[in-house]
């Protein structure tokens, strides 16, 4: 028996800060659920967890062949197709991590009705698990790309900054995932709108081109887009081998922290009725 008068383990009506503190104590459960999430994806498959490697390998290989040999495309004067391929991949991999995680995390709550309505469970960790679980295969791809770039001496010591940039991006993604998954409980259109929104967002972000190629007229739009800074950061680290500027770090960290906390706030407000709605 616990001590009389002690709080229940999971408190729906706790304050924002209490809930946030609770959330950070759930590392063990989150870790277990991520492993479980990955296992569920790969049970009954012949290759098993090897799929984690196959997907990014295929992606890198396909784009390599397509752009390096077929298209012979060039993105600017003096740029070879090989260089454009690297520009493309350093944008595409972080973007795919972002887009895949957001689209799967949006239905994290609606896909787990049992956990929401039948057991006393801290549901705010569900979108987080989805974000981190989906990121796993993208991380492998990013790692492969880093190895290639290091071996070709594109990247120097600045690579040690990559985990920090990635962590900031994950915080940004988790914040968005909380917001979207909570809203998706009430308004199921979210799931329909999202692929379209992500497509538009992708073309408004320097994914298949670089920031420098954006026309002046659209510069303001791009400067309002957080992903511009993340992608710029990746390219600085992976292609230029330079640490991103301090201003970029400030923007990235502030955007991530604000999105994370705002997302948690939205979820915190919504979760008192989530169990009534699913």
């Amino acid at each position: 028996m616990g001590t009389p008068g002690s709080m229940r383990t999971y408190n729906l009506t706790g304050s924002f800060s209490e809930s946030l503190r609770d959330f950070f104590r759930r590392g063990e459960m989150i870790g277990m659920l991520i492993v479980d999430d990955l296992r569920r994806q790969y049970t009954h498959s012949l290759l098993g967890s090897f799929w984690l490697l196959v997907k990014p390998l295929l992606l890198l290989g396909l784009y390599g062949v397509l752009f390096g040999m077929v298209f012979q495309s060039r993105s600017g004067p003096g740029q070879t197709s090989w260089e454009y391929l690297l520009v493309l991949l350093t944008g595409l991999l972080p973007w795919l991590i972002f887009a895949e995680a957001i689209s799967s995390a949006t239905s994290a709550i609606t896909a787990n009705v049992g956990l929401v309505t039948k057991i006393l469970f801290p549901i705010e960790i569900l979108p987080v698990v989805k974000v981190l679980g989906t990121t796993a295969s993208g991380l492998v791809g990013l790692l492969l790309l880093s190895i290639i770039l290091v071996s070709m001496q594109y990247v120097g010591w600045a690579l040690v900054l990559l985990p920090f940039l990635l962590a900031a991006q994950l915080a940004f993604m988790i914040g968005l995932a909380w917001t979207l998954s909570a809203i998706n409980v009430a308004v199921r259109d979210t799931n329909q709108i999202l692929p379209l929104a992500l497509m538009v967002w992708m073309f408004l972000s320097p994914v298949v081109y670089t920031k420098e190629m954006v026309p002046q007229a659209l510069a303001t739009v791009f400067s309002m887009n957080p992903m511009t800074y993340f992608l710029d950061g990746y390219r600085m680290i992976l292609l230029s081998g330079q640490p991103p500027a301090l201003s970029l770090w400030v923007i990235v960290l502030v955007v991530s922290a604000v999105t994370f906390l705002l997302g948690f706030g939205v979820f915190h407000r919504m979760r008192i009725i989530i169990a009534d709605l699913v």
Partner: peptide, 28 residues
């Protein structure tokens, strides 16, 4: 169980709560 919040009125629950609303939720 604290899975839903009252619209009005007050509810005090002292102690750790376990709710068995359904068996086997989350079984794989």
């Amino acid at each position: 169980a604290g899975m839903s919040v009252p619209t009005s009125g007050s509810l005090e629950v002292h102690g750790k709560v376990t709710a068995l609303l359904e068996l086997g939720t989350g079984f794989h």
